[in-house]
Design a protein around this nucleic acid. Structure first.
Lengths: 125, 125
DNA sequence: AGTTTATCCGGACGAACGTACGGGCATGCG
DNA sequence: CGCATGCCCGTACGTTCGTCCGGATAAACT
């Protein structure tokens, strides 16, 4: 079966303990949805770049990432929709930057701290 | 075209600046691959649970998460393959826990800090 | 020994994701 | 005023991911 009735847990205490403190479905969904956005090479690098130079237009962004514009455009679309970046249009050029309300923990922990993880863990397997 | 030759960047300075400091393709791939593992509700909650109670068997884990065993089993398979969790078999029960070399920044920043993000940002949209 | 329990494994299916392409809309320039 | 540029949008396609289902394995209990 997929869902055994499981007459009795093996570790009722721990189950209860975990169950009580575990983030709910919605909170988890929120968290994972924003993590999903960073869990893509193009989007991650877009955010990295914007965190460094504050503002960039789409074409320059593609140049900086050495990616094609379609990919960057799509990445920006999702990030914009999620409210993580904002755009300012000047002439026919559109500049992007990290949104005002960009989650600080995300910027601090994922954009900056976690890079050292990739840098210091060559044997990730 | 998808890849305009872009005679000249708009902001050559910023492009160069970003380009120089940007993490390479491999590092980004590593980072995103581990982030992808957390960017799933089931896997994220599995890690949360294991971070809290140290050790749990598959069945109890399914109970704690209120998910079916198939999902939990699949989640554990991926996490195990990635080396993020280890298992210890006692009788016919298999206990899982976070791996020894579980990336500390990940545990500290994603498992613990980022939850407050989900908790403190009801207007994520 | 046979049966039940706890888990793992592999394949099939459907859904979501990312990419490539074509067209569209504004802006700036000749 | 017409053409080129920079970017956005919608669609179609291929790939990847997660779930569901059946069977297999190993251990404990009778």
């Amino acid at each position: 079966m997929s869902e055994p009735d499981h007459g009795h847990p093996v570790d009722p205490e721990r189950v209860a303990h975990a169950r009580a403190r575990l983030p709910g479905r919605e909170e988890t969904a929120q968290l994972t949805s924003v993590l999903s956005l960073m869990a893509d090479p193009t989007r991650a690098r877009v955010l990295f770049a914007l965190d460094m130079v504050e503002e960039l237009c789409v074409g320059d962004l593609a140049l900086a990432l050495d990616a094609n514009e379609d990919a960057v455009g799509y990445a920006l679309r999702l990030l914009r929709t999620a409210g993580l970046v904002t755009n300012r249009k000047q002439g026919r050029v559109v500049f992007y930057r990290l949104a005002e309300g960009f989650p600080e923990p995300l910027r601090e922990h994922c954009l900056r701290q976690l890079v050292v993880l990739a840098d210091a863990a060559p044997d990730d397997d």
